[in-house]
């Protein structure tokens, strides 16, 4: 087991009286994909900004590559690739120029650079668009270019802030494929997301955050095993709900659905079949853990 890439100990950040990150602990192992899952305003993006040295911490310790972030921010950023939440590609340049100019901020130049740019554009399936202006690219293409840009300095760690928010399913799957390849090649990934499927698919380990605190941590499978019953029957519609009696289930109401969590679904399933109620029976997932821990009220 090698040393973790990033270690936080009671890491805190507040703006005046408003605590955004509240005594958070985590250790991110090398070569893994580590997720920060949480609703809007949970403190995920601020945690990433702290890691990049783009905001001073209010308390606790934060180290990356064994170096305290505060004192070595620029040196640490040299070894990190960043995919920000909203694309900030340079609209004044073409696809390839975006990578070339970004490389210059790392003082990268020379013969190897052209080959590296071609290779990265192939990797994100933009090889044939290298002379296109960025505003002519679709949202998915811009995201892929942003990912290629994050890899220009051959980073050991890539930080992705909601990498697939706002993308269609096809574009999302392409990006998931690329991220899985990156991790397989030994790059450590940190990603924030509020897509459960993304977290379940990509993350080896994750923390669930809300209001600046870590509520739970572990692999997706252990989180599900530790926090919710293995199966859920989701009964839809008031009529259906009225007609059934959730036997030996923990129930939660959300909108017009009743979620019945259980280890023994047989009795309720039998009852539901008899009443012709509308329902879905499925294994529990990360979303169930997430909603249980963070509550079901709307976040704005």
């Amino acid at each position: 087991m090698t040393d973790p890439v990033v270690v936080a100990h009671r890491l805190s950040k507040s703006y005046g009286a408003h605590v955004v990150v509240d005594a958070v602990d985590f250790a991110i192992p090398r070569g893994k994909c580590y997720g920060f899952l949480g609703p809007n305003g949970a403190g995920k993006t601020t945690t990433l900004r702290l890691l990049l040295g783009l905001t001073p911490k209010s308390g606790g310790e934060l180290e990356a590559f064994g170096l305290p972030v505060a004192a070595h921010a620029a040196q640490i950023r040299r070894r990190i690739g960043v995919v920000p939440q909203s694309d900030n590609l340079d609209p004044d340049f073409t696809v390839a120029e975006n990578l070339r100019v970004y490389a210059s901020y790392f003082a990268l130049r020379g013969e190897g650079l052209d080959a590296r740019i071609d290779e990265l554009l192939e990797f994100v399936a933009l090889g044939d668009r290298s002379d296109a202006r960025t505003h002519t690219l679709s949202g998915g293409m811009q995201r892929r270019l942003t990912i290629a840009r994050a890899l220009i300095n051959e980073p050991e760690l890539v930080v992705l802030d909601e990498p697939t928010t706002g993308l269609d399913p096809q574009a999302r799957h392409v990006i998931w494929g690329r991220l899985a390849e990156l991790r397989a090649s030994g790059t450590t990934l940190i990603l924030t997301t509020h897509y459960m499927e993304e977290a379940e698919r990509l993350c080896d380990e994750l923390v669930i955050m809300d209001n600046g605190r870590v509520l739970a941590r572990g692999s997706p499978a252990t989180l599900i095993a530790d926090h919710v019953e293995p199966e859920v029957i989701e009964i839809r519609g008031e009529n259906s709900i009225a007609r059934c009696d959730p036997l030996n289930c923990r129930t939660e109401r959300m909108g017009s659905s009743l979620y019945c969590y259980t280890r023994d679904p047989a009795p309720l399933l039998a009852a539901l079949h008899d009443t012709h109620a509308q329902f879905i029976h499925r294994p529990s997932g990360l979303e169930d853990v997430f909603l249980k821990l963070t509550g079901r009220e709307l976040r704005d």
Partner: peptide, 14 residues
Amino acid sequence: PQKTYEAILATPLE
């Protein structure tokens, strides 16, 4: 609007 500095600040530049 262009957030070019945000992108640059994610590199070693300050």
